[in-house]
Amino acid sequence: MNIFRLAGDLTHLASVLVLLLKIHTIKSCAGISLKTQELYAIVFATRYLDLFTTYISLYNTLMKLIFLGSSFSIVWYIRKHKIVRRSYDKDQDTFRHYFIVLPCFVLALIIHEKFTVREVLWAFSLYLEAVAILPQLVLLQRTRNIDNLTGQYVFLLGAYRALYILNWIYRYFTEPHFVHWITWISGLVQTLLYADFFYYYFQSMKNNGKLQLPA
């Protein structure tokens, strides 16, 4: 494992911890999109099916369990926790799941590496992960005033994707036959979706001010 991969994984882990910290300590999920969290739960559930069939490393198994566990517990908190669920911006978080899930599934049926359940679901999880942040970005755009923890959560998620791209560039030059179009293109699309957010995030850091997106 190279340094970009490790940094990417740790940033991903940090993003989830920031989110859980916010929900658990402040007992608030204001500004957090349940839709995005549910999409991530689907992403991890479909991608980590191999948890029971293939053993890669202790690190790999632990991280998979953490991402599965955290995504499902965040969904549980927002839907079921008697205090947290009151802070959920239901009327603002209007993105429809099937607008995202259905096209990703159709695309996975068309573009995959092998036509097996595992490979199609894996491709589906990559396509879905690429666009799962959309409901969250729309919600940020609508609420405009973003609290620090929510801003950091989205920033860390974007940083994780950017670091994965550096990891693929590194692997391409150090490992023979490392060519993965499905992973690369969906990863690139996913990172590009953060470009606008990154721009305003760095602007607000430069001005030492609060993160605010334009209307």
């Binding site: 991402f67 590496e113 894996w122």
Partner: peptide, 10 residues
């Protein structure tokens, strides 16, 4: 290329 080459990634 197949999924197995990147199965170590999350």
């Amino acid at each position: 290329a197949s999924r197995d080459d990147v199965k170590d990634e999350l």
